[in-house]
Design a protein around this nucleic acid. Structure first.
Lengths: 189, 189
DNA sequence: GCATACTTGAGAATTAGTCTCATTAATTTC
DNA sequence: GAAATTAATGAGACTAATTCTCAAGTATGC
């Protein structure tokens, strides 16, 4: 389900009446370069593209994400941040699931073959074709518990390790250095 | 975690520095009246309130949904429709999980104690406090498969049993009759 | 009962995502 | 390999869902 070379991507797309465009190639490549556990939102991806100097419109970003999800190349994640995230849907790798703290948005991955089996059995029973199955465990992190969640947690308290955007910013810059390898010193805001 | 009487709701809120308002009482009552498996979006809830003659603003609806989710009274569901749904987070009842067809948005519920156990064990291992755990199984329904998904599925094809809003409309009218009991003949659009 | 602080309502503002349409460019055809 | 066909792109308008702001209202604690 996950074409690794431009040629196999082309074949994969053409078989279904879609076309290989430079934009799609670049986007897939970015996902292939992400490290394990990283996942991007449409906005993140658009940022990365811009910093790389690619002029790919946001519309195309959304369209490509949908197309690739639809074809099973990408996996769409619903975490706690209010927008979707995407990652490669590697077939060899076990599906992984997420533990996410609703206070700080930190997410931990874990695997469970058992869950995958339950999901696929359930789909089978009902006569449906399985696409993906995701267990999301919503939790409160120890920090928030210490602060007295949910009795006295100050409503404007922010978890010390709140990573809403920090996490993304971090992985973006990591990714950049990996991709650009010192081509142009981008000015981060 | 789920206060059943106005008095216990009041205690529950006050303990944490929140107040019992008529609005909150009415909203909780609506969720308590929903039948198993029903879940409402903010918009659905607002509709119901209006039809009941309650003048509760949409802002308050959203705020109340958040508050009650935050306190564990409600459960926030991420299905495939692009907006969140809420239902009572009944502690006695087993958590249930969802099978959702990404073509027609039909959702089926199922239970699995095993999944709940895996989720809570995982939270425990990492030292987090479990709030909720949801397995969402994304599938393609048999109809879409017959249409040739994903090789030749026409891009504008719509699954015959596509129920995006039909399901909701149905449960709204059921709920109405249960709540209003023939008080005023509402004019459905 | 009064003061305090939490809540509400109304509407403006924001955000994520979708849609439209003229233009561009992969593929297919010849 | 040039022309015809049809999909894809970019730009920006648009929509839906949700959040924010702030003045006015009202539970609660004393």
């Amino acid at each position: 389900m996950s074409p690794n070379t431009p040629a196999s991507l082309k074949a994969f797309l053409n078989e279904r009446g879609f076309r290989l465009t430079p934009q799609r190639q670049v986007i897939l490549h970015i996902f292939q370069t992400l490290s394990q556990g990283d996942h991007l939102s449409a906005e993140d991806l658009h940022q990365i593209l811009r910093r790389q100097g690619e002029r790919i419109s946001l519309s195309t970003v959304y369209r490509t994400l949908h197309l690739m999800t639809y074809m099973g190349i990408l996996r769409e994640l619903e975490l706690a941040e209010g927008h979707k995230h995407y990652e490669l849907n590697a077939p060899n790798r076990h599906q992984h699931h997420h533990l996410v703290c609703v206070q700080c948005n930190q997410t931990l991955e874990f695997e469970s073959e058992l869950i995958d089996r339950i999901g696929s059995k359930q789909a089978e029973i009902e006569g449906y074709h399985l696409l993906d199955c995701q267990l999301t465990v919503y939790v409160i992190c120890p920090e928030a518990m210490e602060q007295g969640w949910s009795h006295t947690l100050p409503r404007d308290w922010i978890c010390s390790r709140s990573m809403q955007s920090r996490h993304v910013a971090q992985s973006l810059s990591q990714l950049e250095s990996r991709l650009e390898n010192g081509s142009e010193s981008a000015d981060q805001e």
